[in-house]
Nucleic acid binder design. Structure first.
Lengths: 199, 199, 199, 199
DNA sequence: GATGAATGAGTGTTCATTCAT
DNA sequence: AATGAATGAACACTCATTCAT
């Protein structure tokens, strides 16, 4: 909870970097737990074991800190790997695996998702980050679909819109707290084989 | 922006009712536009052309006003009719019609949806209202699915989860501002006929 | 709690008088229970079953109402009888009887005493009422002392100061809540026979 | 009325201590003069020459400030010395000296006494402080009485009740403003030698 | 007489931010 | 780099009082 960097052998630069990140992490945790307006700058400082003023040596404002938190969280680069490389297997197997990966990630970071949703309305930067993540994930999923279409495993379709739809289902389901309740498997199965009976 | 009720012929009771609703509408608009914390009680009073104190003659607190706004909006009873009665036609036609109805409604009330989402994190009542709307809409959609399954038009499936998924897609798509961008038709088509080719 | 005077046969004058007194009594009770600032004019109106505005038809302000409450309580004329007439018996017997009378009265009206004490600091009228009661009671007690001095039952002394002292002891003791704790008998006995041993 | 500590040579710690006390003293004065509800937190800040917010850097609430004022005043430790050590002389001389000491103190702090009385009704802490002071002073006086009884200078009596009575007389007399009017000497003399003639 | 809608100055308190040290 | 004292503009909410009906 407290920290004394004064006798650290670390260079000034590293110390600065360390403090920045420490404050970021504390802020991320508190913002996620209590929301943006539920967290005061003094809360963050206290929890980080520093004075109220020091925050402003590292971040010009609370809002900037929020943006930094969201940026640093960088869902994109943490989600992307979930879609890479795991391409062996049938289309449906791979799809299911990918969605489950995204699902797990979202379940673990529900509070950050809420933070972003709530903040998006006030801070265009955050809304932009959210949008970017969604669109990039959509693209990745869509390119997976396209590949499978090319291979003849999937019918041709509007890959982008279907991909975005799937991503949105996941996102919305996980904003809800109900643990384990989120189960997109039935939805995906329906999507794969269609609701309309095959003659 | 301002109003003078003093020389209205209306009776006391009607005047009270009118004021209540007027304040509610002003609050709804401002909350939706600027968010809950972006709207002060004085803003609402000023916009309604009344004094700061009068608000509290009608609503015991800002929070109560918010809850009243959300309750009064009553998405449920406005959404439900969109699913009733329009049952003639093929399953896919009817489904599409229903979803387009929900879509239009959501598009028109995007700001209220955002308000609810943002408020849900702080006020359990609002979260509950949101949940209830979703679950009831889900049930209605699911019972439509079940009916079509019974008629042999749809394959048996987990109707509730698929219905909730569809509702969530719509909701998430419409939280985004991009006008006209939301188009769930491709998704629905894929859902109906499946991505996996029919031999 | 509520009242409807509209069909009362009473004349206007009597009705007015009745309302005045009713409001006074409600106010007295609430002021005594919750203190002056702990009682709102609306509290009084509600408890009396009338509207908020009606109060001001009868009393020009909350402060005036307070003064009316204190005046109407009229401790003086309720205390005075306790000292009259009961003059038969030995000086010490009579004194003790009188003090016990005052004591009982004070115990029953502790809350009003507190109200007066608290209000005295803000409203000179109330302070004046308090002072007047004390001084008149003092005079009455003092004249009793003087009478007994004249009869040779008491030694000559500064009757007024001794009387006021006794009154003050009683008052201060009864401002405390501790029930039954107040017992001035030992003090009075000491006063009668003196602490210094009689040879 | 105003103060600038910024160029004081004093260390942070001393500055903090100074401000705390300064605010306490200003608050004590204003509370005593105008009463608790007659003094706003902004009044105190203005009078101390600081901003409205600074008060809350030092005291968590107005109520806490009040309690601090009462505690800091600490009548007990200022009254106690008046009863110590001055034990040479006849019982009546010593008693008179002690009471005069208490009297002087009370006369000088009449406004604080009023503050305490008024606040006691709302804040148990204050009532408790008042009670404690009274009871401890009572004990001290009572033990003086007991000592003199043991020496045969006083008759046996209920020392605690007589002591409390005397303390209460003093307190009540001094709540009144009339300067110099309070004179308990006649009361004490009566108490010492008794009203009933010595054969 | 009676109502209660309406007022608006004021209340204690919060908090992001600044800056001298 | 680090502190924490200091700021001051808000904020939600209260309440004695007025007045048209």
């Amino acid at each position: 909870m407290s920290s004394d960097l004064s006798h650290m052998g670390a260079s000034r630069g590293r110390q600065r970097e360390f403090r920045r990140e420490q404050l970021l992490e504390v802020a991320a945790r508190l913002f996620a737990q209590r929301g943006l307006e539920g967290t005061t700058t003094k809360d963050i400082a206290r929890e980080a074991g520093v004075s109220a003023g020091l925050l402003y040596h590292y971040y010009p404002s609370k809002e900037d800190l929020l943006v930094a938190v969201v940026s640093h969280f960088d869902a994109l680069s943490r989600l992307r790997p979930l879609l890479d490389g795991h391409l062996e297997g049938s289309a449906s197997e791979v799809l299911m695996r990918m969605l489950r990966g995204i699902s797990t990630f979202m379940e673990e970071h529900r509070d950050v998702m809420w933070l972003c949703m709530r903040a998006a309305g006030r801070f265009p930067t955050v809304a932009q980050a959210l949008r970017q993540t969604r669109e990039q994930m959509t693209e990745l999923l869509a390119s997976f679909f396209q590949g499978r279409i090319d291979r003849g495993e999937f019918m041709p379709h509007d890959t982008v819109r279907v991909a975005r739809g799937l991503y949105n289902v996941l996102a919305m389901e996980h904003l809800e707290k109900a643990p384990g309740r989120s189960d997109v498997e039935p939805m995906v199965e329906a999507l794969l084989y269609g609701l309309v009976p095959r003659t």
